[in-house]
Structure formats: C-alpha cells, structure tokens
C-alpha cells in the first residue's frame, strides 16, 4: 500500500487522535508508517497539521501536491491545505456550506457539516470521528468501516466507547452535502 494523508484542523479538535487511528490501523495490517505532528504552540487554538505516509517512504513529511487524501476538520484549515493534494486527490472537509472552490477534475471535494452532526448526537467534541466515518464511506480510503471501527474502539478509553463509535457511525451513514 502507498497512501499519503494530511489531517488539518485546530488545537483541541483531536487531529492527532484521528492520525493515530490510521497509523495504528495500517501498522496492525503490517504496513510501514511515517508521520509527523505539530505540538507545542498548536495546543493553543492554532493550526494543527499532521502528516501520515503509509508504505515505504523516507521523509515523514508529505510534499506539496502529493497527498492522496486531506481531512479538513475545520473549513479554513481544509482550504489552507488543499494545495497539499495531488491531482485526483480527495478532500474530506467539515464545513456547513459548499467550498468556494469549483475547478472540476483536479480534486474531489467531499463536504460534510460534521459540527452539526456531532452536536445532534450530543457529542460536539467528536467532529474528528464523524468526519473520519464520512471519509470511509466515500470509498477513497482503502480501509473498511469495520476495520476503522475496531481500531477506534481499541484506542478509546472505556467511558467514551459508546459516544465515539456512535460518532463514527453517524459520519459513515451520512450522505454528506
């Protein structure tokens, strides 16, 4: 497998947990993983970007215009990182409205109001899992819903199990915009 994913959001959105779901899953399937995270200042509500490469690579950083998938947990952070996508890549973005980007054929946009869905299930902090669930449903990510669900369950502390898996499910069964 060769896959490059960018996770972009703001401090407190669980960007690093989202990344962890994918690298633990890939690792459990025997794949090599390389990732790079931002810590420190970014905990203070600043932009957080996390890079993940699955397969054999050297640098842990994803180069511009080479990513296959972009998860944008927040609209502006998604837009800010659109240029990380290669031609033909897919952006899965949390936004209440369509994005002001229309060029067809370059990349595919998948938009979901994950904030609203997370609020509706009473778990506003689970935007990351709602969006991941939605991302899996798009068929652009070579992991199954069951696999992602199992690894999420394994990484989630017991008191959050039900809420987190529910968020994943809600995202998976939503149809986006």
């Amino acid at each position: 497998m060769k896959l490059k994913i960018i996770f972009a959001g703001v401090g407190g959105q669980g960007v690093l947990f989202a990344t962890r779901i994918f690298y633990e899953l890939a690792h459990s399937k025997g794949e090599l993983v390389y990732g790079s995270e931002t810590h420190g200042m970014s905990q203070r509500g600043g932009s957080v970007v996390s890079h993940l490469k699955i397969g054999h690579y050297h640098s842990p950083l994803v180069g511009k215009a080479t990513a296959d998938i972009l998860f944008g947990f927040q609209k502006e952070e998604g837009l800010r990182n659109l240029s990380m996508l290669r031609k033909g890549g897919a952006a899965i973005i949390n936004s209440p409205e369509q994005l002001p980007y229309q060029e067809e054929g370059e990349i595919t946009l998948y938009i979901l109001d994950a904030d609203e869905l997370a609020r509706r299930i009473g778990n506003p902090l689970a935007v990351n899992l709602v969006l991941i669930g939605y991302g899996i449903s798009t068929d652009r990510i070579p992991f199954s819903y069951e696999e992602v669900r199992e690894i999420t369950s394994r990484l989630t502390p017991s008191h959050l199990q039900e809420a987190n898996l529910r968020a994943l499910e809600v995202g998976f069964s939503s149809a986006g915009h």
Partner: peptide, 19 residues
C-alpha cells in the same frame, strides 16, 4: 517548479492564542 496552488485566496493565519 512549485506545484500551483489549488486554492489561492488568502486565508487569514490562525496564530496560537491564550485559551
């Protein structure tokens, strides 16, 4: 050559802030 920007409108930076 640097790949062209897919989305080139400026997006205001999000500097770190006190909580």
């Amino acid at each position: 050559r640097e790949p062209k920007q897919i989305y080139s409108k400026p997006i205001p930076p999000r500097p770190p802030n006190l909580c």
